[in-house]
Design a binder for these strands. Structure first.
Lengths: 149, 149
DNA sequence: CTAGGTGCAAACAATTTGCTGCTCA
DNA sequence: TGAGCAGCAAATTGTTTGCACCTAG
């Protein structure tokens, strides 16, 4: 049932492999494991990601997780978000996919993704009205999820 | 010409004094100086704020700036934003005032504030559609300001 | 082979906290 | 007077980097 999900990972991983070789860098089992783990559990911070990777490969170090995330970030294959807890959270970014934003439960921390074209259009208008050329944005909604209300 | 601006500070400072006494805490010259400096220069990070405060009172320490900002934050008198540079930036928050968001120039760092009711309304709709009770939000637009394009 | 990667530990940077003397209410 | 501050420096926490050994290509 998650064949599509796995196929999705395969495609994304192939992008990683492609970008890494064009960049004269090497693919390693650690990098692959980090990428795969992140792909299957979005919105992880480095500590959580490191723990999950370590469940599979005991030897992977913290620094390698950071360095791999930096690589993925440079290749545009992941996106970082800084929420209130002071840690950076990562999730995979699939090229042609629409940008999405986050709604975070302030009690349990659950994160829901959403996208809204009307807001995106308004953002462009606002930027133009101030003479800015919009390149990117970040929007987080905070509140209580259904089960925490 | 900035009489209105000063009057604004007076009101906000009085809120600070009021909240601080209700909280069984004390007003001190350092706290007042930190509050006043922040009021007159929004979007400062701790280092910048500390430097400006020190221009006026050489003895104020880093920790006091942090502790005062925590107080102000707890009282709802300032808002924190985490932009990409890893430091927290503070600005005063006046009670009845409408929430505003930020547009940041990715080249020179200039920050413009704006507010947009249509987007706020859409945010409420999105939250409801996911069963969330919206309490707060954050929206940052990134791009190039007119002089950096 | 060898440029580049890994893990570890040390270095950094932002923020917090313990402590001792000081001060507002 | 006494509970609560201030300043300093040491401690934490998140992230980066130097180095000696290891490995993908």
């Amino acid at each position: 049932m998650n064949a599509g999900r796995l196929a999705g990972f395969d495609g994304w991983r192939d992008l990683f492999i492609d970008r890494i070789s064009r960049d004269n860098q090497r693919m390693t089992p650690q990098r692959l494991q980090i990428a795969e783990t992140l792909y299957h559990h979005g919105h992880l911070n480095v500590d959580e990601l490191h723990r999950r990777v370590r469940d599979i490969d005991q030897t992977v170090g913290y620094a390698t997780v950071y360095r791999t995330l930096k690589l993925l970030e440079r290749y545009g294959l992941v996106e970082v978000s800084h929420f209130a807890d002071g840690t950076a959270r990562y999730e995979v970014h699939v090229g042609g996919e629409d940008h999405h934003d986050h709604m975070i439960c302030t009690r349990c921390g659950k994160i829901v993704e959403f996208e809204n074209e009307a807001i995106e259009a308004l953002q462009v208008e606002i930027a133009q009205a101030h003479g800015y050329k919009l390149t990117n944005h970040r929007m987080d909604l905070f509140g209580l999820c259904p089960s925490c209300q």
